[in-house]
Amino acid sequence: MTNTENFVHELAEKHGRTRNALMPILQGVVAREKYLSEEAMIAVARELDISAADVYGTATFYTFLDTVPRGRNVVRVCKTISCHMHNKDEIIRALEEQLKCKVGETTSDKKFTLLTANCLGWCHKGPVMLVNDDVYPELTPQKAIEIIQEYNRKSN
């Protein structure tokens, strides 16, 4: 078995092999591998004895279950109204410059993927972004860049 298959197998052992275990298993894969590769989805389908199309169909419903390759750190800037009113566009512009990639893209060193997200639930402290699971409210362009630099250092 490959690494991924082994990992999926462990997740299935942990969460069980019923359909109800699908979300926790997919979430487990994404937490480690950042996205669901074809190999991972097939492994999940095999473990749960469901069709691969079903796994894909379920995964693509959920914004956080990516099925295309993502960088080691996934940055999601809130784009909904309150953050919009508080200049999320500036934050995005600063990040695009810093990371040298556009929204939806991954940096060439595969360290970062820059995305936008719908309301993250910090409207009183916008603009806000998530880096992986961690939240960074009350951003300024400068602050956003520093946060990214910090992640960059950490992942060296």
């Binding site: 074809e38 691969a52 894909y56 169909g57 419903f61």
Partner: peptide, 28 residues
Amino acid sequence: AVSALAVVHKGNHQTISTFMDKPMNDVV
């Protein structure tokens, strides 16, 4: 009992497709 077809994505992107949007001839 085949499930070669599935609903994929949501909202305005929702559509009916196959595993990884592969051509019909390459799926189950």
